[in-house]
């Protein structure tokens, strides 16, 4: 963690029809920091990420990445901006028509089939980084287990060496041991590659392990944020109810 704000969200709001998903999110993430956003299903965690990535345009507010507002960008400018980002999607979102090595190098080649020999090497290096053998280079995503797909997706996200990586529910759908493998990978990526990480999750064990700081999203706003050690004594009834997984409390 060192000083400069990498991402600043200021009063970001987004509605779909009459459904106000984000109602003014304020959040600052510093360079080299790992932040986790926790919150129930449908509280706008994914929408937050997609707004930062420019996949969705917020209705209000601004999102500064390295001091530049990305919400009003389009076309080539936005594409350039995206070189800074990598994202691990919830279901992996691997391209099922392409073999593993072309998936992993997709962000480098922009989908073009060129430099096959070199790209296979790059793919193998990135697979090794996430603990996978190069034997799977030629397999299709559908031939891999869920945990392996997640790791291939992680290799694909880090292959272009982004400065910021988003993790969308990285441990969902995995057993506790596989989930912890992914957690360890994320921690080591943040430390070794020095990336800024933003994770959205409702897995408390994962949040505590991978994040320096945790923020809770509720009804479209960040209602609490603090260091991960304070997660269980935040003094905020909403956070308490959520982290302890109780059905009764202020959250309905």
């Amino acid at each position: 963690m060192n000083g400069d704000p990498k991402i600043e969200m200021r009063d970001v709001a987004k509605a779909f029809g009459t459904n106000e998903v984000l109602r003014g999110v304020n959040l600052t993430i510093h360079s080299g920091e790992s932040v986790a956003i926790i919150g129930g299903s449908g509280t706008g965690k994914s929408v937050t990420l997609k707004c930062i990535l420019g996949l969705l345009q917020p209705d209000r507010g601004e999102i500064l990445v390295d001091g530049v507002d990305v919400t009003r960008m389009g076309g080539r400018e936005l594409e350039k901006q995206r070189a800074k980002f990598g994202m691990l999607f919830q279901g992996g979102a691997l391209f099922d028509s392409l073999p593993v090595w072309r998936n992993v190098t997709f962000g480098i080649t922009q989908g073009r089939a060129r430099d096959a020999a070199r790209m296979r090497k790059v793919a193998a290096e990135n697979l090794e980084r996430v603990g996978l053998d190069s034997k799977i280079l030629n397999l299709r995503p559908s031939e891999l287990s869920g945990g392996m797909q997640k790791r291939v997706a992680l290799a694909r996200a880090i292959a272009p060496r982004p400065e910021i990586i988003f993790f969308d529910e990285p441990t969902t759908g995995l057993d506790p041991i596989r989930a912890d493998v992914i957690n360890d990978l994320i921690v080591s990526l943040v430390e070794d590659l020095g990336v800024t990480a933003l994770t959205i999750t409702h897995d408390m064990a994962s949040a505590r392990k991978i994040a320096h700081r945790v923020a809770m999203l509720y009804e479209g706003r960040i209602i609490w944020h603090g260091p991960r050690d304070r997660l269980y004594d935040s003094g905020n009834p909403y956070v308490d109810q959520f982290v302890q997984g109780r059905a009764d409390g202020p959250i309905r």
């Binding site: 997609k50 594409e79 995206r82 070189a83 999607f89 979102a93 391209f95």
Partner: peptide, 16 residues
């Protein structure tokens, strides 16, 4: 590809 987020993934990998 849309419902499995592959289209979003493609955009984040800077491919239109």
């Amino acid at each position: 590809m849309r419902v499995t987020e592959q289209l979003d993934a493609m955009e984040t990998l800077r491919t239109d």
